[in-house]
Structures are given as structure tokens and as C-alpha cells.
Amino acid sequence: MTEQSDEGLTIREVRLGATREEGGTREVSYVIGGERDLPFSGDGAGRPLVALEICDDPRFWPPVVRDYVGDLANDTAEWARAAERTYGADLVRLNFTSTKQRGFDAFDAIAATTEEVLAATARPLIVEGSNEPELDSEVFRRCGEAGEGERLLLGTAEADRYRSVAAAALAYGHAVIAQSPIDVNLAKQLNILLRETGVPQDRIVIDPYAGALGYGFEYSYSVMERIRLAALSGDADLAMPMICAPTDTLSVREVREAAPADQEAMAVAWEFYTAYAAIVAGASIVCVRHPLTVERLKAALEG
């Protein structure tokens, strides 16, 4: 049932990562959520987190990032380490792009990579599993198992395929990213489905799906605002923190076709404006791919 109350709601707090005391190996864990008002307008919320996205198969990664990180792209664990230590990311989002290959069946590698990345990092980890319903349950099981106790943030549950992510999250104690296609109602529906499957509300992070700046981002922006407003005015099924991960930002025409000298600046600007706007709309975690964007965002969020 939707809890309605006149005073409005507090966004649920979701813990990411687990320290030793919490049963994991992370040096820190983060608690996101807790807002009682619009972003920047009240108290209650911590600073939004900036996640750097990396992947296990760079063939599916934007060239502008590959050029910047060089050899790191071929060593997922080192890339993850650099994300935290060199680039200053609050956390890493690991994408299993390898599952996009035709006939993928290297499930052991999924587990191994998860373990390696966890070993290479000290902060909470976001894991983006497969994009393929056929692979879902095995991929989620393997990475979920490999990260048992670490309170990963596992992605991505969608209305058509949420049961396997939910099962892995429940079995190994992780949180779940619930992604719906830019629609406040669909976001709510998915949260209800997850709830009715048994995923506790404080282990759900909403991903309203982010379009790229200039390519429909405004829809995502408004949906995030709507989700947050609905939550603050009492809709418990939407009162979860939000994550923004605009996957297409670095493949838009403006970045792809920029003069080589401008490309990096354009990539960073495009990611920065998108991520910052998402924060203004209420995102607790913004995911970017270019290491320089991490720095820019963190500077912007200080003070």
C-alpha cells in the first residue's frame, strides 16, 4: 500500500557498500537518500556521489575515454583502482560489457572480475550486469555471489526482467537499481513489483533512465523532478534515492564529431552539464565515464 501522509516523506536511506563491521571489506560505506526537501533547499541529504564507470570489455566503450585512460582500459582492476585513487571517484560502476558479445558464456570471468575489482577498490561498488534477459540470471548470480556481503548496488532491474536481479540481491544482500523508461508511473510500477517480490524498500535505487543532453535529456530531468516531488509529497513507492547514468552522452554527435582538439573538452562539458542537472533534479549518484568529469563535478559540489 502507498503510505500517504500530509507532512510528506523522507527519502529512504539506502546503504551502499559494507565495512568490516557491516560484514564486508570496504573502507567506507555510503548512505544515500534521507532528503526531506528539494535538492539544495533543505537539510538531510549528504553530498551526491560521483561514480566513474568502467567496463570489462573496452570494445564497447567510447573512444574518447579509451584514448584518455590508455592501457588501463585493458586491466579492469587497475582501471577501478585508478578511478578511486587517481581520478577521485566516490565509487566505481563496473559494466560487464563483455556480455554483449554474441554467444557469451564466460560466467566464471564475471565472478573473477567482480572479485578483482573489489580487491582493487576500497569503496562501495556498483555492478551493471548483463543486458540480455537470457544471461541475466546467471550473470547476476555470479557477480552477486562474488560480492556477497559487500552490499553492491546491482543493476539493472526492469519491468520485464526484474526477478533475477531481485533474486540475486536477496540471496547475497545487495541493493538494486530499478530502471524504467523515463516515466514516473513506470518507475513507481517497477518499485511496486520489486516490493511485491520481497526486495526491501531501503535497497532500491531508482534509475529513471537518462537520455543524453540534447537528445531527450529534458524528459529525464523532468521525470526525476516528478519522482522526487511525488516522493516528498507522500508517495512511498517513489521515495527512493535516484541514480543517473546517461549511457549515450559520449556518443552524441556533438562529442563524436567535435574537432580532435575540442573532443575531450566537449566530452567533459557534455557529461558535466548532464550530471549536474541530474543532481539539481535530485540524483544521489551520478555516473560519468570521462575521468576529468569526475574532478569537475567534485569541485562543483564542494562548498
Partner: peptide
């Protein structure tokens, strides 16, 4: 469209 998507659920997204 909003009403439509919220109605695409049993019985409705808003149980209230």
C-alpha cells in the same frame, strides 16, 4: 499518456 501508463498496471499504479 500519463494516465494511460499509470493505468497499465493491475488495477492501477496508484492503489489508492
Amino acid at each position: 499518456m500519463d494516465r494511460y501508463t499509470s493505468s497499465c498496471f493491475l488495477p492501477h499504479t496508484d492503489f489508492a
